[in-house]
Design a protein around this nucleic acid. Structure first.
Lengths: 202, 202
DNA sequence: GATAAATTTTGCGTATATGCAATAAATCAC
DNA sequence: GTGATTTATTGCATATACGCAAAATTTATC
């Protein structure tokens, strides 16, 4: 007998364990107060199949999975995301001035703020821009997600792929798609200081 | 013969069409420069099965899908997200000092920064805390998502459900689960000014 | 509690997914 | 180009998913 609890052997970069499919389905169905029969009607699947999936007795085919999601009015994405709700709730986190965790890179000196929360949707840090010339970057940084910076002090220049560079002053704010190559350099005598917000979007 | 191109009948709230599974797999595999044999080894599946999935000749079981994702080093989420490249990419947004859109509430005066982007994952604004006493709030604010505030000037007190109030000084940073009731009041003579970051988490 | 109704689970036959090994196609060396 | 090697596809046997209908369980009604 097959059960979705069975995990495959760990691979080098194994993602974190997921809620079993059986539980995901049961939860979503019961949240919507649907009986197996109703969901069967909406999805075009048989009651028995649904039952066996919820009991982990059967590994549905992708085709079945698609019908199932459609029947629930969800995209596959939404379906698989639904189980990933962090059990964490009601948390809070305080970082006093200057007490954040420090991270140094060749180009930036970062102080991570309130980074002791596991499921944080936005990373926020105070950054000193050490780089002073674009040539210091062998390649533009580029990743999934979005970023926003707010200038606290100093002057800086933002390079983004596809666009002309932008110069920023204290009080200015700049947001961009992280998929574009990007790099920051200080223009002022002392390194510019910015607040930097980064969201993964995953 | 089965093909993942076949879509089920539209349901009331049908999600947008997805990239066929066959294409998703082929794309991800080729991005990583893997042959069917290599991926087969990494995932514990047979070469033939992979071939048939990529040709839309077979609807893999959920168990197979899990092995497949593990072999690619992806979560199911990441796998299904991968096809959903946002039509929006390569955008950027600049708000100069004091030029953000203003929003007034009884308790706060907000200046929205870079809010002219539709699919922004984090809302960022500069806020003056007008409220001076908890009694001004008939009920604590409470919603989905996460928030973080960074004190720019003034002193303020943060009330959060389940916890004792916290007093913040310039430079302090405070993050919390928005599901907890929360409210901010100024303690200093002039209204405290904070940077406020809010993520929906949806 | 007993009976009825609704809901879920299970037996069984058919359709399909999977792995192995052979075949076909593509790529590389010369 | 021809042959060697790597890569992808296909035939076949077996294991498993799926739907139908019957059985078992749970829930509702009196």
């Amino acid at each position: 007998m097959w059960t979705s609890e069975l995990r495959t052997t760990d691979t080098p970069s194994d993602p974190p364990p997921r809620e079993p499919l059986s539980d995901t389905l049961k939860r979503l169905r019961q949240d919507k107060a649907l009986t197996l029969a109703k969901l069967a009607a909406q999805s075009g699947l048989s009651v028995s199949t649904l039952s066996r999936i919820e009991n982990g007795q059967l590994s549905p085919t992708f085709e079945t999975l698609e019908k199932l999601c459609a029947g629930l009015g969800l995209s596959l994405n939404a379906f698989f995301n639904s189980g990933q709700t962090s059990s964490l709730s009601g948390w809070r986190s305080l970082t006093r001035k200057g007490q954040g965790r420090l991270v140094e890179t060749p180009h930036y000196r970062l102080e991570l703020l309130c980074d002791d929360v596991v499921a944080k949707q936005a990373l926020v840090f105070r950054a000193e821009i050490l780089a002073r010339d674009l040539s210091e970057f062998d390649t533009l940084q580029r990743h999934m997600g979005q970023e926003q910076i707010l200038v606290q002090s100093g002057q800086l220049r933002v390079f983004t792929e596809h666009y002309a560079p932008v110069d920023l002053q204290p009080g200015d704010s700049f947001a961009f798609d992280s998929a574009m190559g990007h790099a920051l350099i200080s223009l002022s005598d002392t390194p510019a200081v910015v607040l930097w917000i980064s969201t993964s979007g995953a």
